[in-house]
Design a protein around this nucleic acid. Structure first.
Lengths: 144, 144
DNA sequence: CGCCTGCTTTACGTTTACGTCAACGTAACC
DNA sequence: GGTTACGTTGACGTAAACGTAAAGCAGGCG
């Protein structure tokens, strides 16, 4: 666990409520991924942690971003897609045209998610049927 | 469009209700994928169409399988995963032990789909928030 | 007959998302 | 001061899912 190098034993300058930080292996352990993967996400522009010398130090915000990346992976998104989605959160879009493109992107993602919802619904139903058939077949094979 | 070579002008032997078949380009057009992709799915064991000479001819069942593959892709499944799911449908599992492994696999997939559902729910909510912020920012920028 | 269209196989190339060393830096500790 | 733990930057390797020619066969047609 990465610890703050407190010069004095007192909590130095509690300027913010959360000054918790993570090392790269902290995050790799927590999420069950390799440090290589985390560095790769940084390479692809999805993370940009602070540095203490050479070492990366991750803020709680970085940790949230990582969670969003992994959620995106569970939904089958590419890293580029996840990056786009994450960029939809921060309000770094002053331009009107950009805001409209953002709204368009949001609408697109929403449509995709609705399609995924439909896909999941049908797959769930089909799994139910498959389970029924399997259970019936089991009952027949166990007590013939 | 691939047509049956009817020796006689009469519909020869209507032994089955559906004797519709598809060429590989029929399917590629219908689903907006390349023939290369379809052949690749066959190579990976997801399809096994009949042959008329060298040419592949696809039945309605093959077409359904292809639809299942593409649905799997939308959900972020690998071709191996999609193959496993498709194999859950057909009742080619006589052995009791295999049936139990099948039930296990079904349960696993169900858990994964439920996780995806949760992920989609939260992402949808976050998209709503992002849209609100964008609209607010737009209103501010348009009539300051 | 030659050409076109559609299909085939073979094979090498590409992108994504990392895995896997290698070689090195640094801080702690015994 | 050597070792151990953890970190770093390359650099090369790899699996998945195709893309992209290249070269050839089969049938229809003007």
């Amino acid at each position: 666990m990465l610890e703050e190098p407190n010069e004095s034993p007192m909590k130095s300058s509690p300027k913010q409520a959360e000054n918790h930080v993570y090392s790269i292996s902290d995050l790799s352990r927590e999420f069950g991924i390799t440090t290589r993967a985390i560095r790769f996400y940084e390479d692809r522009g999805l993370l940009s942690p602070e540095r203490r010398g050479q070492a990366r130090i991750y803020s709680p915000e970085d940790r949230v971003r990582l969670k969003l990346i992994l959620r995106g992976k569970r939904l089958g998104f590419s890293l580029d897609e996840s990056r786009e989605i994450i960029e939809m959160y921060d309000p770094a879009h002053g331009n009107v045209e950009q805001l409209q493109r953002l709204l368009q992107g949001i609408e697109q993602k929403r449509a995709q998610l609705q399609q995924q919802l439909r896909d999941i619904q049908s797959l769930m139903g089909e799994l139910d049927e498959a389970e029924s058939r399997a259970r019936a077949s089991l009952a027949k094979n166990i007590s013939p």
